[in-house]
Amino acid sequence: MSEPNAHNEQGAEHEPHIVSPGTYAIILLVLLVATATTCGMSYIDLGEWHIAINLFGWHVGTTLFWNPVVALAIACTKMTLVVLFFMHIKYSSKLTKLTVISGFFIFLGLISMTLADYVSRAWGRW
């Protein structure tokens, strides 16, 4: 049922990987460029996208505005870079990586399940 030799994480301990200052500098540069981009993009109207589906007489639909989507995409990219390099996740154990992912999974659960209620209220009764 269990593997007697399954590895204890203690066995996986190692000297932390040292990231070079060069890498840090590149990341810093990318982050600054991304900041400038997101700031500039907000001055451009990227338009919107209407999604509407007619399912057996239900009108299910929503409108997607591109500006916040792009802004959040850039923010997520910046976050990923900080987490991977500044916070050394790229060089961390699987356990730490899993920890980070599970945190965001539950956070997205909170946001998406709550939002699902708000969005679907507009769909009306059965």
Binding site: I44, P68, M79, V82
Partner: peptide, 18 residues
Amino acid sequence: VDIIWIFLYPLLYLISRY
């Protein structure tokens, strides 16, 4: 704390600047 600000910045400052 930096990451939190990375999200606060577009969410609070950059709502439809055009």
